[in-house]
């Protein structure tokens, strides 16, 4: 695997002020609360976690769709927050996003051609070049060229996601954040899209940040995987290592909770007690301690450091 850094995230935080009304108590949701990780060139880094863990917020922060509260994001060695608005819009061609919901991510009143062309128009490409690029992109994602004048509602979910992928590829980005790109699709279609994403990466060599809640899909597609819980990264390692040798008790529980489509599979299930705490009032210390089967007294007080335990295997837990 390449070891050249593409995206470097340091102490990234995003806090949302959700106090409503003027006189209510201030209420802050710490959606992302101190992330440190690196995405290397050419790899696929998977991010998994349950709802409210901050994985989508992380993707949006990297895409500069949200302003961070604290920390730095370096892209290709440059601090993204140092870019002016104009500079940012110019640089956006290098990092693009594939969205979860192929029904909501395409403007219903634009035809396929306009949708795919839009980033090229924004980047100032001329018309002839754009038309040719659309033809190539449609071919790349497997949409027949004579569908280019159609509207999104004439396509199925899988085909719409292909259009969304073509749009993300339009400017030949280096980095693609895929936020739950197959979650809204049926199983048989999911596999088509996953294969497409893998093929495109092989052909064009870009880097993925693959955000999903489906652990088996993430394991399949990722080189490395990070596990998030309540705005924090609790574990990160090479994909196979993580799935075979999970160190954090949350990762262990999460992996064992996934129903396996195999009747001979032995479920040695770690059933977690309780629910995910609300991120506007996270527990003190390690956020996982109220549900953790091995929590000790000090887990309630101090947040464990995110440390390298084995080579390339990071975990944030006192008891490991």
């Amino acid at each position: 695997m390449a070891t050249e850094e593409l995206v470097k995230v340091k102490n990234l935080r995003k806090h949302f002020d959700v106090s409503n009304g003027l006189f209510r108590k201030k209420s802050i949701v710490k959606a992302v609360d101190g992330l440190d990780f690196t995405v290397y060139k050419g790899e696929t880094l998977g991010i998994v976690g349950e709802s409210g863990c901050g994985k989508s917020t992380t993707g949006r922060l990297l895409m500069q769709l949200l302003d961070k509260t604290e920390g730095t994001i370096e892209f290709d060695g440059e601090d993204m927050s140092a870019w002016s608005k104009k500079e940012l819009n110019k640089r956006r061609k290098d990092f693009q996003m594939i969205f979860q919901d192929p029904y909501a991510s395409l403007n219903p009143r634009m035809i396929v051609e306009e949708i795919i062309e839009e980033p090229m128009v924004a980047a100032g490409m001329d018309k002839q070049e754009r038309k040719e690029r659309v033809t190539k992109l449609l071919d790349d994602v497997g949409i027949p060229d004579d569908y280019r004048k159609r509207y999104p509602h004439e396509f199925s979910g899988g085909q719409r996601q292909r259009i969304g992928i073509a749009r993300a590829l339009a400017l030949k980005p280096k980095f693609i954040v895929a936020d739950e790109p197959v979650a809204a699709l049926d199983v048989s279609i999911q596999a088509q899209i996953i294969n497409l994403l893998v093929d495109l990466q092989e052909e064009y060599g870009f880097t993925y940040l693959f955000i999903a809640h489906d652990l088996s899909v993430v394991q399949y597609i990722s080189d490395r995987v990070g596990v998030m819980y309540l705005g924090k990264m609790v574990e990160m390692s090479e994909s196979d290592e993580l799935y075979e040798n999970p160190l954090h008790p949350y990762t262990q529980a999460l992996l064992s909770s996934v129903p396996v489509p195999d009747v001979h599979h032995n479920t040695d299930r770690v059933l977690l007690e309780g629910e995910i705490p609300s991120p506007d009032n996270p527990p003190s210390g390690c956020p996982f301690h109220p549900r953790c089967p091995i929590a000790k007294e000090h887990c309630k007080e101090t947040m464990p450091e995110f440390r390298e335990r084995n080579k390339g295997h990071y975990v944030a837990c006192h008891e490991v």
Partner: peptide, 11 residues
């Protein structure tokens, strides 16, 4: 539901 919660409900 989330996976860990799904596991509880299936159980």
């Amino acid at each position: 539901l989330d996976v860990t919660i799904q596991a509880q409900v299936l159980d």
